[in-house]
């Protein structure tokens, strides 16, 4: 029996390694970028082959941003990480896999594409949701994932906080506002995708706080006749950053390809792919070209309002931070 099984096992193993390319990269990313990187990887592989004559295969891993960072820290052999927020890459850097100044190695905070937080509502906007204040009204049910596990959820939270801070002027009032908002949340999924499925497929909630790109994708997937995107006048500039994981790339000898891979984002082609997938491109020319697809929103940055990720993380999402206090009361 063993003799019969062994060749089958060998065959299975062989089959899985049969299509190996010259170079293989592993890109560990967060949840909503699946479609984006499916596009981008194809384009990059073609461009790279054309330039160097070498074939490159990019493997993807997706999940909650924090879980993904944890996996990389625990030894997932990622050549590059493309996560939802700088804090998660900082955590990897904190373990010595990436140098601390990683965000300065690439232009624009190492975030070649950006997004913002918008509202996805059901057709006809039955609850009349226009702005952040509408989210804390009683009877409005808001869907957003858990900021402890989801990067997108942290942007949602900070966007709401930044709005309240600007409108009501004090941190206490902002805390009150965000607390009221989370009291309207019936489900806290662990990831942004989970929340979208809850809202779209399970018909729970009146409004979904979502990445802009995620909201557009949901609309494309399920039909414009079912969901509408509401862009609040003021929101946060979400900058999902990326970095080579030096320790891994050096060990595997893939640094050159990994760097070329990330730099490709800063080309016209890369920016075009971002824009096509509803991420806001950084390149002014491409941005102008896609102007019509993105609503005009006044955007504040995390550095402006919160003094950077490390500070925001510590104040809001660490154990005993503001988010925990909200769920204590």
């Amino acid at each position: 029996m063993v003799r019969r099984i062994l060749p089958i096992l060998a065959g299975l193993l062989w089959a899985s390694s049969a299509f190996a390319a010259d170079v293989t990269l592993l890109n560990v990313s967060y949840d909503p970028t699946r479609e984006l990187y499916a596009d981008f990887n194809k384009a990059f592989a073609a461009a790279y082959q054309k330039e160097t004559g070498k074939s490159v295969e990019i493997k993807q891993s997706h999940g909650g941003s924090g879980s993904q960072a944890r996996a990389v820290i625990d030894g997932l052999q990622a050549d590059v990480v493309t996560l939802a927020l700088a804090y998660d890459i900082d955590a990897i850097a904190g373990k010595g896999l990436i140098p601390p100044d990683w965000q300065k190695r690439l232009p624009l905070n190492a975030s070649p594409y950006t997004s913002t937080i918008v509202f996805l509502v059901r057709k006809g906007n039955p609850k009349g949701i226009k702005d952040w204040d509408d989210l804390i009204k009683s009877g409005v049910s808001v869907i957003t994932p858990n900021p402890k596990t989801s990067g997108g959820a942290r942007w949602n939270y900070l966007a709401a906080w930044g709005y309240a801070l600007k409108k009501y002027g004090s941190a206490d009032k902002a805390k009150q506002f965000v607390g009221d908002l989370y009291r309207n949340v019936p489900v806290l999924d662990t990831g942004a995708r989970g929340s979208t499925v809850t809202f779209v497929e399970r018909a729970v909630g009146d409004v979904l706080l979502a990445w802009e790109n995620e909201a557009f994708l949901a609309q494309r997937q399920f039909g414009k006749d079912k969901f509408e995107i509401v862009s609040p006048p003021l929101s946060i500039l979400a900058e999902p950053p990326l970095s080579v994981v030096d320790k891994v790339a050096d060990k595997k000898g893939t640094r050159a390809v990994a760097e070329a891979y990330l730099k490709y984002w800063y080309t016209k082609e890369g920016q075009e792919i971002a824009a096509r997938n509803s991420y806001r491109p950084r390149d002014p020319e491409i941005a102008r070209e896609y102007q019509a697809s993105f609503a005009k929103v006044e955007l504040f940055t995390i550095d402006d309002v919160f003094g950077g990720w490390t500070k925001a993380q510590k104040e809001h999402f660490a154990e005993g931070g503001v988010f925990d206090q909200i769920y204590k009361n």
Partner: peptide, 9 residues
């Protein structure tokens, strides 16, 4: 437990 893990705790 899973949440704590992804918070690096």
């Amino acid at each position: 437990i899973v949440i704590r893990l992804s918070e690096f705790r």
